[in-house]
Design a protein around this nucleic acid. Structure first.
Lengths: 339, 339
DNA sequence: AGAATTCAGTTAAACGTTTAACCTATGATA
DNA sequence: TATCATAGGTTAAACGTTTAACTGAATTCT
């Protein structure tokens, strides 16, 4: 059997309380005693029992990570990277992350992830857009909550977001600087905060350069920013508006769709159309041409979210909701050119 | 605070032992008493404390799921699907899954996932190929172990594998049935059991049809079955062997690479070359033409692995290692044609 | 010098389960 | 009738921590 705190105490010639206090650096324990205890702990390869600790502190040491199954299974490992960020933080902490997917169309009758029902988590990170019904059910539970890359339209929450407005601005400004004025915005699901913020950045860039906003060039009809929908949007847009010379797609997936439509219709990128994406998730797809895009630091998002939920759990006082914006960066590749 | 077993016992007018026994369907408790207890449990929304249970039973209720980071981040959600399969099983069980990635080049100095060091898991599922050094370090811990989609070349383990031999046979037989005789095999890392098994299936199909195995058409030079390597293999193969009319790529990623090479060199698929992949992970890539491939039931792999590890944990006696083969299926799409 | 404070620990209760050992009433057996 | 089984529980110890309350010695203050 593994060593317990008793074994450590006995071997160190102190009480188990001393061992416990030494571990958490309590000032009541002298440095010399602490070091002795710590040495014995190494020797015995002692690891405190999470169960025993949990029993008395009423904590579980677990953080729940919830996202919809379609997000988790997307070809682009966007949310997978965010998850990896949370995992990265746990290496220096005492937490484990429990991942659970919910259905994209989570409804009244669906059950919450088991770790919520059983209260086996001390906090929850919700990644990406989740159904309203899920949040409704979740609200019955008084568990610290952090949203990452999404937040509900009503209510105040702690969130970690991408600086989408800056990103949208950067992408559009890049196109303007290249001489484009007929710049289209290809969005989807405008109720999604990320997409509407990117659109805001787009508009700000145009306004700053005194380019009139042409609403014919703003497409937000599709329900989901996926490849196929990018294809469809590009088709509609380019058939109707021959004057367009540049497209800012609200994410890389839609941008890929645009590229496919252009390939199918002998439209050259960047010869005829300059294209900018968002997310930077398609790096290994060997796209032709390589896509100019706005890089989102995905692992960073996970790190920030994890740190935030941990600080919420420890600072019980800390009830004020925080919002963190992580910065983005324009990556210029070959899909844009000077006009 | 949440209800405890005491609250249930008091309200039901029985001892806490009775509640505990009633929950686990012990025959010493009469049906009428059990039902009464169960009803109260529902009423109070009682959920046993995992910590308390763990403390006395010396279990954690956690299963570790380990894979390399590059596998987890691959564009094809292959291992993600397997993970989802394990998660699916936990819905009907009392387990949680802790996911940890290790580096692809895990070495002597790297630490094992924290949940192993701290013994916070009752069993471990290892998914995909992992470095030898990792297994070496892991072997110091006496924890039930199941491999899925990979197993070490030496030693006996419980494993869940794809029926790769049948798959390789099916793919090759399909090409033979279409009239092809100059069929190439594009592999990589022949030390990987999955790849060598697929090659075995390929050879068996050729032999059964009395087609001589031409070792010039078998490529296993690349170290990793990825797109770029598929591209390179195709280049080498097709430049040297003009007579090839069909290619069986050991997975879809390499097949994609072949498609890209062919697209770049005006080779028509399936006009000039028929192509079969393996895995069926590229469904949403809008490939042109859609790829004929061997479907691997990925979620099923996870389900089987999870069930296996659970049975290993409960049946302490069950020390004999098991091996499960999950069947595959040929999916004929548009990348192959009759010659 | 005596009182008060600080330092460096120790003691013991509590957390919520499981389970071996025990108990008691009832019916069956010899 | 005395004995034995069985059914249907109960009692209490144990699991490995944390932490409030306590203690005794050394130091500081007045």
């Amino acid at each position: 059997m593994s060593a317990t705190i008793k074994d450590v105490a006995k071997k160190a010639g102190v009480s188990i309380a001393t061992v416990s206090l030494a571990i958490r650096n309590n000032s009541r324990i002298s440095t010399v005693t602490r070091n002795k205890v710590l040495k014995i702990i190494k020797e015995l390869n002692y690891h405190p029992s999470r169960s025993a600790k949990g029993l008395v502190t009423k904590t579980t040491g677990n953080i729940g990570f919830v996202l919809t199954d379609d997000h988790f299974l997307k070809t682009e490992p966007f949310y997978t990277m965010i998850f990896l960020g949370t995992e990265f933080v746990t290496k220096g902490n005492d937490y484990y992350v429990l991942l659970a997917t919910i259905k994209k169309d989570f409804g009244e009758d669906d059950e919450l992830p088991r770790f919520i029902l059983e209260r086996s988590v001390d906090g929850i990170i919700v990644a990406g857009k989740v159904p309203h019904e899920f949040l409704q059910k979740l609200s019955a539970y008084d568990i610290p909550l952090v949203f990452v890359d999404f937040f509900p339209s009503v209510g105040r929450y702690s969130v970690v977001m991408v600086d989408n407005i800056s990103g949208g601005f950067l992408a559009t400004k890049h196109l303007i600087d290249l001489g484009h004025t007929n710049i289209a915005f290809l969005g989807a699901d405008i109720t999604h905060p990320s997409i509407s913020e990117r659109l805001t950045g787009y508009k700000q860039a145009l306004e700053q350069s005194n380019i009139r906003i042409n609403y014919e060039l703003i497409s937000t009809d599709e329900d989901y920013p996926a490849r196929q929908n990018g294809y469809n949007s590009a088709k509609r847009l380019l058939e109707m508006n021959k004057q367009v010379t540049a497209i800012f797609a609200c994410n890389d997936a839609m941008a890929i769709g645009v590229m496919q439509y252009c390939a199918d219709n002998n439209i050259n990128i960047p010869g005829d159309i300059s294209l900018v994406g968002f997310d930077d998730v398609e790096a290994d797809l060997l796209l032709n041409p390589p896509l100019t895009t706005v890089r989102v630091p995905k692992v960073e998002l996970g790190i920030e979210a994890m740190n935030m939920i941990i600080s919420m759990i420890s600072d019980k006082s800390n009830h004020h909701t925080k919002k963190i914006l992580v910065p983005v960066e324009l990556i210029v590749r070959k899909s844009t050119r000077k006009i």
